Computed example of a mutant assay.
Amino acid sequence: MIGEINIYGVLFPPLLIWVGLALLLSTLIRRGVAAAGLYRFIWHRPLFDLCLLVMLTGLISLTANRFF
């Protein structure tokens, strides 16, 4: 996808939108993992959270490029 996304006259790069969406999904997943008590099995919590955000951003970007 080349170009910008126009939201009410303001142009945003697509990566900014994908990272914002990934951040929202990441927050939901992190809350679910914390509620289930699965963080006790994870060695480095901040590293896990960063990897989750990067993987979700890549997945959303790949999906958006295929369908738009």
Rank of each mutant, 00 (worst) to 15 (best):
L16E: 15
W43M: 14
R45A: 09
G37W: 02
G9N: 05
L15W: 02
I7V: 13
L52F: 02
P14F: 00
L38D: 12
L56M: 05
L62P: 00
S61G: 01
I5A: 04
A35F: 12
A35N: 15
R30Q: 15
L28V: 13
P13A: 09
V10C: 02
R30N: 14
V10K: 13
L47I: 11
H44P: 01
I5W: 03
G58N: 08
C51K: 04
L52H: 02
W43T: 15
V10G: 02
L47P: 01
R40H: 13
V10F: 07
Y39I: 08
N65D: 14
L56D: 06
I29Y: 04
S26E: 12
T27V: 14
L24K: 06
M55N: 06
R40M: 10
R45Q: 07
L23S: 15
I60G: 08
L50T: 12
F68V: 01
F67T: 06
I42E: 02
L11A: 07
L59M: 11
F68Q: 03
L11D: 09
G3K: 01
A22G: 10
Y39F: 14
H44W: 13
G20F: 03
T57Y: 02
L59E: 08
I60Y: 08
F67K: 04
R30V: 13
I7F: 05
F41W: 15
L47T: 10
R66K: 13
G58V: 09
I17R: 00
T27L: 15
I2H: 09
V10P: 03
D49L: 08
E4M: 04
A35S: 15
L52I: 03
I2G: 14
G20M: 10
C51G: 04
N6A: 11
R40C: 05
A35G: 15
L53D: 03
S61N: 04
S26R: 14
F48Q: 06
Y8Q: 14
S26C: 06
L16G: 07
G3N: 00
I29K: 10
F48G: 03
I5M: 03
G37I: 01
G32Y: 05
A34L: 11
L53C: 07
L16H: 07
G32P: 14
L62Q: 07
T27M: 10
F12Y: 09
V10T: 12
A64E: 10
L53T: 13
T27Q: 13
L53A: 06
L53V: 14
R30H: 12
P14W: 00
L21G: 10
L47D: 11
P13H: 06
L53W: 10
L21H: 12
A35V: 11
T27C: 09
G3H: 01
G32I: 08
F12Q: 00
W18S: 05
I5E: 01
L62F: 10
R45T: 07
V54P: 03
F41G: 11
V19G: 02
V54C: 03
L23G: 14
R31S: 15
A35L: 13
L59Y: 10
I29M: 09
R40Y: 09
F48M: 06
R66C: 12
I7K: 05
T57N: 02
I17N: 03
I42V: 12
D49M: 09
W43F: 15
L56F: 05
M1H: 04
I2Q: 07
D49P: 00
V33K: 06
